[in-house]
Structures are given as structure tokens and as C-alpha cells.
Nucleic acid binder design. Structure first.
Lengths: 344, 344
DNA sequence: CTGAAAGCGCTAACAT
DNA sequence: ATGTTAGCGCTTTCAG
């Protein structure tokens, strides 16, 4: 009732109320030594009466940093991104930083807007899962001292920055080799658009595994493009109509795996192809057969990227690091279906 | 090379470089009228040369707001929360606000810490999915003008604030009624701890549906507690050992549904109970049978809460609103299994 | 059209 | 032990 002054009480108000100087209030608020206990109590009393809370934005402006970092991802509602986010948030918290989250919808222009907005707020650092391929606009920020770490995909345009990736090629190779080990010789690859780094890497792993087993690379067994149900159904139908259809499928990301599983369920046949997917799925163990996958570690990507970031913020000036996180093959049944006798 | 002055260039630097006053730079940067085009060009040139970017944190300190809001959720890596987050982010963006995300891990103390940290930064508003039951600490913030909206669960301790909820009781009643309609008379309820608002509400819906059908409420068929696999398996076993075991299950949240599905899969019997779950699951359509669920709309909760928040920020001083969002029954098979003949 | 001065809320540096 | 001054980077008066 007394304080209908627009807005919240400031240190100045507290000082006036307690009959001391501004700086004394500051000392009490920050627990600095050199304040007479009685005075301190008077100040605390005033703080309580006025409901004073320190304004950290103002404090940090003075300090020249913001104790906040920005995270840019494609879509929180995706399992992969949300696992990554959670880890970044945890690391940020443990370092006393707040986290801004921005969603790029995998749109390079939007990603750039978000990054710009974060930098305008002077975030101390950025963790980016890049949608764009040109990150030249970040160079001035880097030079100005903003720490940047990339996760899941490397930055474009030769920017030097810490980067944490899954072993996409190795994981895909592992998955394909698993199918080969189970007797398959005609293995289809259903992947995302080759414009996407991880998609290219996984395709590379597929080719590596084929080559290592002395199997030919057959373009008719490879379909790349947006993870669209129609496109995938058409691709599967085309492959099924081949003289020697594939006996196994490698689906190169989680969304593709689910769409393909739906397509297979919609057209149940006697010779169900084996399937190994990249990315783990919730309930994958409850499907029949269970879905064998190459799982990556989204939380590990986020945690590692954030930790690299804070190492930079702590003063590390070493050369940019590139960390590769291993993947893990989870055997559940779908990848162990043998090829039909006549096709083996 | 020229500018090794610690930190980034400021308006003052630009002014010096362009040979104008600070205020003129401010005018150019903010597109204010009343600057001679030639002068403006000189300023722009200096901005380019120095790589100047306005510091929004400083600008906003002056403006007395932060153009940011805080979101407090239990766990981004949960489907429900991530859908909600995504919606809140979108609304924040559309209003030119940045979003801080804080993860409470459903821990009231942590929630409070996060809220306090957000308020110390002077966020303009908060969207909270409350874990705590006491939100008295928010009263001063509300009085200071911070807008607050609650989502999914109401605030504790009689705080008056906009709240958006799912129709938990109605949805649960709908799911249970569906089972009753399919001939079930002994329906188990497997729910979360009654300490949780949504768990209580869903239990209420269960009882309502039973009452509406003239069926008795049998405590032996109700199990409440943490969504722990062991606890749930034990509960299911105890119910199966009853003289008249349940012929259908209502699982009151997504996690419980998945644990129960796993338990049922591990012990396949002839008389598989029907099942309806609260919360939709990814791949629920691909299980056999498909999982019938009562789906809520996490994005709707987030969007609505954020919109209410921005309405407040736009000046709405009306009484606190409470919005109830409908749920939707999705029929997929598990909820339509009839009771065994002898039990009907 | 342009600029000087004051101040947002706070802290660091220096008095007293 | 306490207070004064200056200033973080910007915008809002108000004067020229």
C-alpha cells in the first residue's frame, strides 16, 4: 500500500528505508564482509518489508556477462532433441547459467534469426544443432568471445568450433554388417535427404559395410529423400517389384523407421524383410518382432557439447575439438530375421 | 586488429568512429526519424566497420522489461512436456520474446529455485507446470507485475492465476466408460501417486464412470503409486490372483501404460485384459493389438497457457481464468477386447 | 536535425 | 564500517 511507486523496489529504496547508503545494501545482499551486524539486520529488515529482490539482469550488465547460454534445436518435440535439451539444461544449471531455448524448425533462416537474437542478448555461449550450412555470420560473434559448440552436425563454411557428433557412419556400418552377418546380401537403404550431414554419413557407413563384405552397391536398393510416408511406401513398392527384391532394410533415422514399420504392417506378407533402424524408438521392444536399432546417445551429445562450451567459458583457448560419440546396436528381433531360403 | 579493446564495440565507439553523438547512433540503430541521410550513412558505415551489434540486454534494462518469459517443466525428454514446450516457444517467438527453459525434475524445491532465478532475471512472465503445491512465494512476484500462467496442474495455496488443464476426470471417465460399453464390469485402475493433481482427477473420472454405470468401486482393483515397473508388476499379479480378477485395465498415464504393456507382454496368457491408457504413445498404433488411449493435447496446453500469459502482458487485468481442454479417445484395439465369456 | 545530460539497477574502486 | 563516485550500454528527456 505504501509503495505504489511503479515497479519493484530497488537497492536505492532499501537504502532509503534502512537509512544507509546504497553500497551498504549491496554489501548485505551479496554477503560481502565489513558490515556491522546491527546495520546489516536493519538492512535485512528493510529488504523484507519492501519485498526487495536483487535484479540480476542489472547486476550482470555491470558484470559484462549474462550467465546464460542459448540452445538452438530443430524441434523439442522430437525424442532426439528433447534428450539433448535436457542434458544441456542440466549442464547449464550446474554452472549457474540459465538456458534460452530456440527452435529452428530445421529452417536455416530461422536458425540464424534465433542465433542473432541470442547474441543480441549477449548470451555467453551457444549450443547449436545446425540446420543451416553457412555459419559465417557467427565468425564475428566468435571473435567477440561468444563460445559456440555444435552438436549432431558440424558447422558449415569452415568455421572452427567445438563439435560433437555421433558416429553416424560407424553406427550405420555396424547395423548393416549385422544384417549381412545374418545372411542378407540384398539390403536396402532408406535414408533422409543427402543434403543432411547425418544422412550422408549414414549412407557412407552403409557403403562401407557392403564393401567390407564384398557386396555390390546397387542404386536400386537406395532411396534418399524426405521422411514422407508416401515417398517411402512408393520406394518400398518399387523395391519389392525388383527381380531380386531386398531381403533386409536399413532405415536411416527414427522417423523413417516408424513410417517403414507402418508400411510393412499395412502390407503383411509371408517374406517380411529384416529391419535395422538408426535411432532408438520408444516401445521398440514391444513390437513384434522387436525392432533392432543402432541407438545414438542424444543426452551424451548435449552433455558433451555443453561441457565443451563451459570449458571455453572457463578460459580454454585450445584448438577446436571434434568429439565422436559411439553408437550402440540393440538387438531385438527384426534385424535377426533370416533371408528367405531361396534368396540366401 | 584495430579494435583489441576488451569486448565488443558499443554505441559510444560507433559514435566516436562516425564523429557524431551517441544519440545519433541510437537513432540510426533504432530507425528513428530525424537523421540526415548522409549522417545516417556515415553511422551505418561505422557500424559495419566495427561490427557493432546493439546490446539488447542493456536496452531492455533501460526499458524496464526483458522481453523474455520462463518455462518450468518437469522433464523435456518426456513427450508430454516437449510438446508443451514447443508450443510455448512458438507463442513466445511470435510475441518477440525469448524463452528460458528450466527443468524441475518434478522437485518442488528445484522448481522454486528455478522460478526464483527467472524472477531475479526479471522475466516478464512465467509458464509453470507445477510440481510443488505451495506457490505462496509467487505472490510478491505477481504483485510486482510478473504474469504467471499454470499448465496441466493448478497452483497450490490458493494463488489466483490463469490455469490451463486437460479434462483429466472427463477423459478418464470416457476411457472407462468405453471399457464398460465393451462389456467389462471389473476394471482395474493403475494410477500415479494421489499426491499428484492429475492422478487424483483421473481417479475421480474412473469412479464417476463406474458410478454412472451402476458398478461398485472396489479398492482391490485400484493401485496408486509411483510409476515403477516392479510396483506395477506386483499390483497386476495381486489383482490376477483375486477370485474375480479384472478383465480390463485403465492405466492412468503414459509411463504406467508402457510399464503395464511390458508386464503383459512378459506374461502372455490366454485371457489378455482389455486396456485403455491415458496419454497417447508413439507407435501405439503398431502394437498388436493397437493401444486404445485417451489422448490429451500437450501443445494445446502450452499454447493456451502462453497465450493467456501474453494477454496479461498486453494489459488484461480481468479475473484469473481456468481453461479446460478436452481429451480425445483413440480407438485402436486394446480397449475393445471383450471380457472372457465366463466373466461377462 | 543533432547533441548533452540523466538514469535504468547494479557493482568496482576508491574515499572517509 | 560506511559512503561517494563512476560507469556497464543503452534510451529518454530536453536543449540547441
Amino acid at each position: 500500500m505504501t509503495d505504489t511507486r511503479r515497479g519493484r523496489p530497488t537497492m536505492r529504496d532499501v537504502a532509503a528505508a534502512a537509512g544507509v547508503a546504497l553500497k551498504t545494501v549491496s554489501r548485505v545482499v551479496n554477503g560481502e564482509p565489513g558490515v556491522n551486524p546491527a546495520t546489516a539486520e536493519r538492512v535485512r529488515e528493510a529488504i523484507r518489508r519492501l519485498g526487495y529482490r536483487r535484479n540480476d539482469s542489472a547486476r550482470l550488465l555491470r558484470a559484462g556477462r549474462t550467465a546464460s547460454i542459448g540452445l538452438v534445436i530443430g524441434d523439442v518435440s522430437d525424442r532426439f532433441y528433447s534428450g539433448l535439451s535436457r542434458a544441456v539444461e542440466a549442464v547449464a544449471r550446474s554452472h549457474g547459467h540459465l538456458l534460452f531455448t530456440g527452435i529452428s524448425e530445421e529452417d536455416p533462416a530461422l536458425e540464424r534469426d534465433i542465433v542473432t537474437a541470442f547474441c543480441a542478448r549477449r548470451v555467453d555461449g551457444l549450443v547449436i544443432v545446425p540446420a543451416g550450412t553457412d555459419h559465417g555470420h557467427l565468425r564475428p560473434e566468435l571473435e567477440a568471445g561468444v563460445a559456440v559448440a555444435f552438436a549432431d552436425r558440424p558447422p558449415g563454411s569452415g568455421l572452427e568450433a567445438d563439435t560433437v557428433l555421433s558416429d553416424n557412419a560407424g553406427g550405420a556400418a555396424q547395423g548393416v554388417a549385422h544384417l549381412i552377418r545374418h545372411g542378407h546380401r540384398r539390403i536396402a537403404f532408406l535414408g533422409d535427404s543427402p543434403a543432411i550431414f547425418t544422412a550422408r554419413e549414414r549412407l557412407r557407413g552403409y557403403r562401407d559395410a557392403l564393401a567390407a563384405a564384398g557386396l555390390p552397391y546397387d542404386e536400386a536398393l537406395v532411396s534418399l529423400g524426405r521422411p514422407d510416408p508416401h515417398r517411402l511406401r512408393a520406394a518400398l513398392a518399387a523395391m519389392a517389384a525388383l527381380p531380386y527384391p531386398p531381403t533386409a532394410l536399413f532405415t536411416a533415422n527414427g522417423l523413417i523407421t516408424t513410417h517403414v514399420l507402418r508400411a510393412l504392417a499395412a502390407r503383411p506378407g509371408p517374406d517380411r524383410p529384416a529391419l535395422v533402424g538408426f535411432d532408438d524408438l520408444e516401445l521398440a521392444d514391444l513390437l513384434v518382432p522387436g525392432v533392432t536399432v543402432v541407438a545414438q546417445d542424444p543426452a551424451g551429445l548435449g552433455r558433451t557439447a555443453a561441457e565443451l562450451l563451459f570449458r571455453r567459458l572457463a578460459g580454454d583457448r585450445g584448438p577446436a575439438q571434434r568429439v565422436l560419440l559411439p553408437t550402440r546396436l540393440i538387438v531385438r528381433g527384426s534385424g535377426e530375421i533370416p533371408p528367405p531360403a531361396r534368396a540366401a
